Simulated scan of single mutants.
Amino acid sequence: MGGALVFWVGILVCGLCAGALFTFKSMADPTLWRTCAILSLSCCYLMWAVTYLAQLHPIIVPKRDDLRIDL
């Protein structure tokens, strides 16, 4: 699992956003519901992708402080 996972999940989220365009046609205010669904999906995806990529490629490499010498 690497950076390609972010790409595939992005395609999945785009598909869900496209599905949201057709799902909320019979609601009282379809534009509001569509906007909420698409914004929620895109914001959740962006937060997940940034967190995932930050853990995958950290800017500062962690250093160990408790290096022990085993005899």
Score class of each variant (00 low, 15 high):
residue 34 R to P: 00
residue 30 P to D: 02
residue 18 A to S: 04
residue 47 M to G: 09
residue 57 H to E: 07
residue 39 L to F: 02
residue 50 V to R: 09
residue 44 C to I: 14
residue 18 A to V: 12
residue 14 C to V: 15
residue 17 C to P: 01
residue 63 K to T: 13
residue 56 L to R: 03
residue 67 L to P: 00
residue 59 I to L: 08
residue 51 T to C: 13
residue 11 I to M: 12
residue 9 V to K: 08
residue 15 G to W: 12
residue 8 W to P: 00
residue 30 P to K: 03
residue 16 L to A: 11
residue 4 A to F: 15
residue 61 V to N: 02
residue 65 D to Y: 03
residue 64 R to P: 00
residue 2 G to W: 02
residue 59 I to G: 00
residue 4 A to R: 14
residue 38 I to L: 04
residue 39 L to E: 09
residue 39 L to R: 03
residue 42 S to Y: 02
residue 10 G to M: 09
residue 69 I to Q: 03
residue 68 R to L: 08
residue 42 S to Q: 03
residue 26 S to N: 08
residue 43 C to P: 05
residue 47 M to S: 14
residue 30 P to Q: 08
residue 10 G to W: 06
residue 67 L to V: 06
residue 35 T to C: 11
residue 25 K to F: 13
residue 61 V to F: 03
residue 22 F to C: 11
residue 1 M to H: 10
residue 32 L to H: 03
residue 23 T to R: 11
residue 24 F to R: 08
residue 9 V to R: 08
residue 39 L to N: 12
residue 19 G to R: 03
residue 36 C to T: 05
residue 43 C to D: 11
residue 59 I to Q: 02
residue 70 D to K: 08
residue 45 Y to A: 05
residue 50 V to K: 12
residue 44 C to T: 14
residue 53 L to T: 13
residue 43 C to L: 15
residue 37 A to Q: 02
residue 49 A to E: 02
residue 3 G to V: 11
residue 33 W to F: 14
residue 37 A to D: 00
residue 66 D to L: 00
residue 13 V to A: 10
residue 19 G to F: 10
residue 61 V to Y: 04
residue 16 L to E: 14
residue 6 V to G: 05
residue 35 T to E: 06
residue 56 L to Y: 05
residue 17 C to S: 12
residue 25 K to G: 09
residue 19 G to M: 15
residue 9 V to H: 02
residue 44 C to G: 12
residue 54 A to C: 03
residue 34 R to N: 10
residue 17 C to R: 05
residue 38 I to V: 15
residue 63 K to L: 13
residue 27 M to W: 14
residue 49 A to R: 06
residue 38 I to F: 06
residue 8 W to E: 08
residue 40 S to A: 08
residue 16 L to T: 13
residue 56 L to W: 05
residue 11 I to K: 04
residue 43 C to V: 15
residue 42 S to W: 07
residue 62 P to K: 02
residue 6 V to F: 11
residue 15 G to P: 01
residue 5 L to E: 05
residue 10 G to F: 01
residue 43 C to N: 13
residue 16 L to Y: 15
residue 68 R to P: 00
residue 15 G to D: 06
residue 6 V to P: 00
residue 30 P to N: 05
residue 67 L to T: 00
residue 15 G to Q: 10
residue 70 D to G: 03
residue 68 R to D: 01
residue 48 W to I: 12
residue 54 A to G: 04
residue 45 Y to L: 12
residue 22 F to H: 09
residue 40 S to E: 02
residue 41 L to N: 01
residue 60 I to C: 03
residue 49 A to G: 06
residue 43 C to H: 13
residue 52 Y to V: 11
residue 24 F to N: 10
residue 51 T to Y: 09
residue 4 A to C: 15
residue 27 M to L: 09
residue 44 C to H: 12
residue 60 I to M: 07
residue 27 M to C: 14
residue 12 L to E: 10
residue 21 L to C: 06
residue 49 A to C: 02
residue 13 V to W: 09
residue 1 M to Q: 05
residue 9 V to Q: 03
residue 49 A to H: 02
residue 52 Y to A: 05
residue 22 F to N: 04
residue 65 D to M: 01
residue 22 F to T: 09
residue 57 H to F: 11
residue 20 A to M: 04
residue 70 D to W: 04
residue 3 G to F: 15
residue 67 L to Y: 01
residue 53 L to V: 15
residue 36 C to L: 14
residue 26 S to A: 03
residue 43 C to F: 15
residue 22 F to S: 14
residue 12 L to F: 13
residue 69 I to L: 11
residue 54 A to F: 14
residue 27 M to E: 13
residue 24 F to P: 03
residue 60 I to T: 06
residue 33 W to A: 13
residue 14 C to K: 12
residue 8 W to R: 00
residue 26 S to I: 11
